[in-house]
Each structure stands twice: as structure tokens, then as C-alpha cells.
């Protein structure tokens, strides 16, 4: 492996770690709102890190431009989607979990 491959591997390994953390948070956290915290942050950074790793491996070409578009789209669309689901749940009256209650 050359130097660029090692840097790309490090980025992608970081992204994979954050994605595993996000999935674990989706399983472990006690209610809907806290689960969205895990998915909305960990998944965004994990996916962007994996795409950045692909960009470093690719070098400079037209595919890199498409990957940049994809990265910007994920950065904008992921928080908006999280916010939309959370607003729908809040408006329709789902009560948030307080400390000390049972898991839901």
C-alpha cells in the first residue's frame, strides 16, 4: 500500500467506527428522541468520512466532483430529515423520556 491508500483507509475506518456507534445508539438509547441524537450526528459524520476516504483514494477527477456533491447533499439533507421526523413526533404528541423512567 502507498501513502495515499493508508490515509484513505484511516478515514474510512473512522467513518466505519462512527457508523457502528450510531447503530449501537439506535439500539441502546431509551426513547425515540434520544435515538435520533445518535443517528443524526454519528451517521452524518461517519458517511462523510467514508466519502472523504473514497475521494482521497480517487485523486482529482470528475468522479471527485460527484462525490463532493454527494457529501454536500448529505450534510444538508441529513439534519433536515432528522428535524422533520422529530417535528412530526412532537406535534403529534409523543412525550419525551425523562431521567428515571422505564425504557420505551
Amino acid at each position: 500500500m502507498q501513502g495515499i491508500d493508508i490515509i484513505a483507509t484511516v478515514f474510512m475506518a473512522g467513518g466505519a467506527f462512527f457508523m457502528i456507534t450510531g447503530a449501537a445508539g439506535l439500539l441502546r438509547f431509551p426513547d425515540f428522541y434520544t435515538r435520533l441524537h445518535a443517528t443524526g450526528k454519528c451517521d452524518t459524520l461517519g458517511e462523510v468520512l467514508i466519502i472523504v476516504g473514497c475521494m482521497i483514494y480517487q485523486g482529482w477527477s470528475f468522479i471527485t466532483i460527484k462525490l463532493i456533491f454527494l457529501m454536500l447533499f448529505i450534510f444538508i439533507a441529513n439534519p433536515v430529515g432528522t428535524h422533520a421526523i422529530m417535528k412530526a413526533a412532537y406535534v403529534s404528541g409523543l412525550k419525551p423520556w425523562k431521567k428515571g423512567e422505564a425504557r420505551r
Partner: peptide
């Protein structure tokens, strides 16, 4: 239903990568 929609959104974004 909200947990299911959140999970489907998460799976969709993972499928992109």
C-alpha cells in the same frame, strides 16, 4: 411508527454510502 420511520431514514442514508 416513528421509530420505524427513523430506522428507515437511517438505512436509506447508509445505503447511499
Amino acid at each position: 411508527i416513528f421509530n420505524q420511520i427513523a430506522a428507515s431514514n437511517v438505512i436509506g442514508t447508509k445505503v447511499i454510502v
